[in-house]
Amino acid sequence: MKNFLYNDMEFSVAKTSSGWDINRTLPNGDFAVVGASLFKDLGEVDAGIRALALVRKVFPVGIKIVGPNVSHPNMVGDLKIIGPDVSHPNFIYWNKDSTSFAK
């Protein structure tokens, strides 16, 4: 079994009879399964690389901006009404993980 830290979360990659399982350690010490029976034909090193790549995609690091989208106001006469706009959630992700930034 191999452990790694990503974005302050601890993950483990463990070999099973049907491939590799990736688990995420929860704050209470339990673990949740991120993926099961993956990367069947890979050895430990390659499975670890693929596991990290998958974890980066499942848990992308970044900021989530929640708020109105000012480019889509509802017009009432010449008044622009900018309310909560769930159709434009404005998710923006940085393309680097937390290890790129000072703690």
Binding site: S18, D21, V33, V34, G35, A36, L54
Partner: peptide, 15 residues
């Protein structure tokens, strides 16, 4: 995901 793993399935979960 845990229940499918226990069934022996190949699975990932994404929020």
């Amino acid at each position: 995901v845990k229940e499918i793993k226990e069934m022996g399935g190949e699975v990932i979960g994404v929020q």
